[in-house]
């Protein structure tokens, strides 16, 4: 039984480095309304403002919104990486976050060595580590590349390895950012299958993407983020028809049904 509660969460970034107090930026900040000052008069960017929702077993949530709407920050906060300045987050269940393709992997180490590190992070025994290595190797189809340093991989290969690693560990809550779309079509089909078995066994999936077809196909709930706030929250068809221009919505719909047919 997994659940994830986000209660009145606010996140703001302090601007320490660079010329955060330059006149240009201050004017820009006043105009956009996203910049604020904290109690000690430091400039901050309010990335999330009073965000609340709750997720339960079986939920497949998608985030949409323009660049800089706070989607990635929210995913990071849900993964427990950014601890909020306001509100609280309750995580019940094992979380895995695929936030960037590198995923904290050491690019100089080989694929196998990175798998080993991940196994140690999860406290696996030697035997479990071997099973994990086999599982990842089989799914990612990287063959002998797993014995080479990760920096020699193409970006698509890194995505495969990261995805295989994150899902092999069978998280109860999986948080994914949009880079997953960097995989080729065959990989996307495989990834979807793997996710479906996972979500089928009653877990939570959270996906942030600009690809409406993928969201329609994978998600049963969409949250539309805007300016660090929840703008709308509801079933995919409803939210996406409001978010997208009508002809793009129709396109996405046909694309989604085409993907499902494959």
């Amino acid at each position: 039984m997994a659940q994830l509660l986000v209660e009145n969460v606010s996140v703001s970034f302090p601007l320490y480095h660079g010329e955060s107090r330059s006149l240009k930026k201050t004017v820009f900040a006043a105009a956009s309304g996203r910049m604020g000052q904290d109690s000690r008069k430091r400039l901050t960017v309010e990335a999330l403002r009073d965000v609340s929702f709750s997720l339960h077993t079986g939920d497949r949530l998608g985030f949409i919104g323009s660049n800089g709407a706070g989607k990635t920050t929210l995913l990071r906060a849900m993964a427990g990486i950014y601890e909020p300045v306001g509100g609280r987050i309750v995580i019940e269940g094992l979380v895995t976050a695929l936030l960037d393709p590198g995923q904290g992997m050491n690019m100089e180490l080989t694929g196998y060595e990175n798998i080993r590190l991940r196994a140690l992070f999860n406290g696996y025994s030697e035997q479990q580590t071997r099973v994990l290595q086999e599982d990842v190797a089989q799914f990612a189809e990287l063959g002998n590349f797993l014995s080479l340093p990760v920096r020699t991989y193409s970006s698509g290969m890194i995505v495969r390895l990261g995805f295989a690693l994150a899902t092999a560990i069978h998280p109860q809550i999986l948080l994914m950012d949009e880079w997953i779309l960097a995989g080729d079509a065959a990989f996307l089909g495989k990834a979807r299958q793997r996710l479906e078995t996972m979500v089928g066994s009653a877990e939570i999936l959270v996906l942030s993407s600009h690809n409406a077809a993928i969201l329609m196909q994978w998600c049963n709930r969409i949250i539309w983020m805007e300016g660090g706030r929840v703008h709308a929250d509801g079933p995919p068809e409803e939210i996406l028809s409001a978010y997208l221009p009508p002809e793009q919505f129709e396109q996405a719909k046909t694309a989604a049904s085409a993907l499902t047919a494959v």
Partner: peptide, 22 residues
Amino acid sequence: EKAGAGLFRPDTPLPQIVVISS
């Protein structure tokens, strides 16, 4: 370590609750 009797359990994690509060 000789833990886990050599079987890879898909649902290894023990149910844990993490509360991250401000």
